Measured scan of single mutants.
Amino acid sequence: MASQGTKRSYEQMETDGERQNATEIRASVGKMIDGIGRFYIQMCTELKLSDYEGRLIQNSLTIERMVLSAFDERRNKYLEEHPSAGKDPKKTGGPIYKRVDRKWMRELVLYDKEEIRRIWRQANNGDDATAGLTHMMIWHSNLNDTTYQRTRALVRTGMDPRMCSLMQGSTLPRRSGAAGAAVKGVGTMVMELIRMIKRGINDRNFWRGENGRKTRSAYERMCNILKGKFQTAAQRAMMDQVRESRNPGNAEIEDLIFLARSALILRGSVAHKSCLPACVYGPAVASGYDFEKEGYSLVGIDPFKLLQNSQVYSLIRPNENPAHKSQLVWMACNSAAFEDLRVLSFIRGTKVSPRGKLSTRGVQIASNENMDAMESSTLELRSRYWAIRTRSGGNTNQQRASAGQISVQPAFSVQRNLPFDKPTIMAAFTGNTEGRTSDMRAEIIRMMEGAKPEEMSFQGRGVFELSDERAANPIVPSFDMSNEGSYFFGDNAEEYDN
């Protein structure tokens, strides 16, 4: 993207840094990872977990959730003011799984939030270390993106479920800051804005008074975040219109849905970061690795190297396929839920299948599930090659597409044709070009129609051997075009429920 120079890199967003050079960025990201790792080690000690239990991804998720809940100030305040039966607002906890007599047992633990905050700050040299908290939120978000298709949420806001490739980060909490905003897809931002506008339509006082002023500035800020994701002048001009509207209503909703559809071809720039579970960072720190000293990046080879040398386990339900569970977590670790499966298959070195073909449910185990038949197995999170994460949407291309997802959002900077089903997408653009945004709409449609099938995206960008740390010898991959490109292809993934 041309304006790259004016933006802070995501590592800076990730670490609240002012302008830093590459070495400083690597050190501050490393410091953040160190903090998460030290916190995780301490929690495993508190909970008396064995090494194996500490490497269980379900335990990692519970521990991450506990610290996120302990620092969720708004919710904590709300819980104190609106006490609900049987919930102690000062405590947080969740299921911890232990191996007892050759069987997995679930144990519900409860801790004072104050105590968890103390352990977290102690692991982070006394700081609140917001960057580390956001990092864990993005890992949870990436896992949700890989596990669930947001059909219901899309339909509720009037969008087409086939636009799911635009929904990265749709389950990120509001408090995820600049680093969170960077990884949100165009569809996620559109959905947040539509929800806001709908509230304004239904509630006369939404934009009024002292609160209304705050609401208005939040609305304009979200519009600017979305505008910054678009790469064409016409899309940005249309966002200006939406932002400046005196009284946002149905016309703005129409414009936003139009823009979301246009992003299936004229893709937005959305950041991709490899955020790993805390149970990967903990053992690495415990083994003596100093992330701050060595430096770390979320968008280069580092996460690949770390996963190459990590042992992570997962509980497996009786009829689940461990290899499929591994694929789910591998995609989440690489922030690749909406990437082209052919690119992923090449990088991973084994075939990556669409969601609907995987015999696996989510990673988390519900409290009512029976533990008797639970097994555990090693997650295979290694890769054959590594590639640089991208934040450009890439230019655009036609490809055989599917009944489910009709476009992709690249996660890796790797040369390819970008699949999208042009006739299906263009069919949504018939007729409606009147109104105050008509010239911009016409211009956007013209650009979409001009998108050429034979153009290559990320020209000359390749993948790298894991021994090639400096990215000196790019390998331009070859793809098996007979395979499906979309992950949520004609899909039956479970729906995400809060």
Rank of each mutant, 00 (worst) to 15 (best):
G362I: 11
K293H: 14
E18N: 00
Q58L: 13
A179H: 10
Y111E: 05
R150W: 05
M238R: 08
G158S: 09
H324T: 13
R55M: 15
A218G: 05
G450E: 09
G37M: 10
E320K: 07
E115T: 12
I36G: 13
R208H: 10
G180M: 10
H82P: 01
G349I: 10
I444Y: 07
F479S: 08
S269Y: 07
K113I: 04
G356T: 08
K227R: 06
K31A: 04
L193E: 07
M481Y: 02
K357Y: 11
F464K: 09
T215N: 12
K325H: 13
N334C: 05
R317E: 11
D127P: 05
S50V: 00
D491Q: 09
I316F: 14
V190M: 05
Q311G: 00
I96G: 03
A323W: 06
N417V: 15
K273Y: 09
E495H: 07
E11S: 03
M371S: 01
K90F: 02
G288A: 15
C275D: 10
A493E: 03
R461L: 06
H324R: 06
R461I: 12
S478H: 08
N142G: 06
T23H: 00
G200H: 07
F39R: 08
C164M: 06
E115N: 13
K229L: 12
G209K: 11
S84R: 05
F464A: 09
E380F: 08
G30H: 09
L466P: 01
Q241D: 12
D340T: 13
S165E: 08
Q308Y: 09
L110S: 10
T433R: 00
E484M: 11
A85P: 04
A442L: 00
D128F: 00
K351L: 04
E495I: 06
M105N: 04
T396Q: 01
D340R: 08
Q20H: 04
I116Y: 12
E14L: 00
Q459G: 00
L358T: 14
A263S: 06
G126T: 00
G54P: 07
E465V: 04
M66T: 01
I388D: 07
I253A: 01
K422W: 07
Q398T: 14
A337S: 13
A387W: 11
N397K: 01
G35V: 06
C333A: 15
A22P: 05
